[in-house]
């Protein structure tokens, strides 16, 4: 049996319904929520602030630090709170996905701390987290050369799909998950991970699909940022 129709009836190159909101956490410098289907991520940015431990301080450039965590209630089986091997890895890849766009040269000795929390998980949590974190950073007034848009592509059975759900990731004939983060203006890739097997040709096809899908994410991010300041300017 091939995977002829997706479980939720989407087209193969269609993203789940998305929602984004900026400025959801009052005491944070910048914050945002990003929702992709049943996956909900919130991100809060604090900074520029003093960096501890202080030996990490860099006088020539500010620091970008990310803390990713899943809420204990975000998954069906309770997730034990606190950092894990998995969440540490995702924190690092989120940092490196965002780092190329943020200009921290004027923020020597200080740092921006990004806290990403997953309220509800249905696959693609790191991509939703990166989308939320990019919005929160922009909201915090950090100088950014571009936004960062992230989406998961992959293979379910024998079909290349965009934005997999948990159900698809657990497909009985095997599935491959390939989360990517793209700078929408240049099309450069800042995150590329793969869990599963795909041929070179399939990866190329998947990346093309991902880059196309990312444009709709960018549109939504821009809309969310502009909605916060409705009525400002012209």
């Amino acid at each position: 049996m091939t995977y002829a129709k997706r479980f939720d009836g989407r087209k193969f190159d269609e993203i789940r319904p998305m929602e984004a909101k900026v400025g959801i956490i009052k005491r944070a410098t910048g914050s945002a929520m990003f929702k992709m289907g049943n996956t909900i991520a919130i991100a809060a940015v604090y900074g520029p602030r003093d960096v501890f431990p202080s030996f990490l301080q860099n006088p020539s450039r500010g620091l970008l630090r990310c803390h990713y965590d899943m809420m204990s209630f975000s998954v069906t089986e309770r997730k034990r709170p606190g950092p894990t091997r998995r969440s540490n890895e995702i924190s690092r890849v989120t940092e490196s996905a965002l780092f190329p766009v943020v200009d921290l040269s004027k923020f020597g000795n200080t740092g921006f701390d990004i806290y990403v929390n997953i309220l509800q998980a249905d696959a693609g949590t790191r991509t939703a987290g990166i989308n939320a974190a990019a919005l929160a950073l922009a909201d915090a007034g950090a100088p950014m050369k571009d936004l960062v848009c992230s989406v998961a592509v992959g293979k379910v059975g024998d079909k290349i799909c965009v934005d997999l759900t948990k159900e698809e990731e657990d497909y009985k004939d095997g599935a491959t998950d390939l989360p990517i983060a793209v700078l929408p203006r240049s099309g450069k890739i800042t995150l590329l991970q793969m869990d599963g097997n795909m041929t070179q040709k399939e990866i190329k096809e998947a990346l093309e699909m991902g880059k196309k899908a990312v444009q709709s994410i960018k549109k939504l991010q821009v809309k969310a940022l502009k909605d916060k300041y409705k009525g400002a300017g012209k």
Binding site: G47, D139, A140, G141
Partner: peptide, 22 residues
């Protein structure tokens, strides 16, 4: 633009005055 803000045109100089942040 580097920031979320209001653009200002001063002859040929383009500025963005940020709306958020510290």
């Amino acid at each position: 633009s580097l920031k979320v803000g209001l653009a200002h045109i001063d002859n040929r100089l383009l500025k963005v005055v940020p709306l958020g942040g510290k």
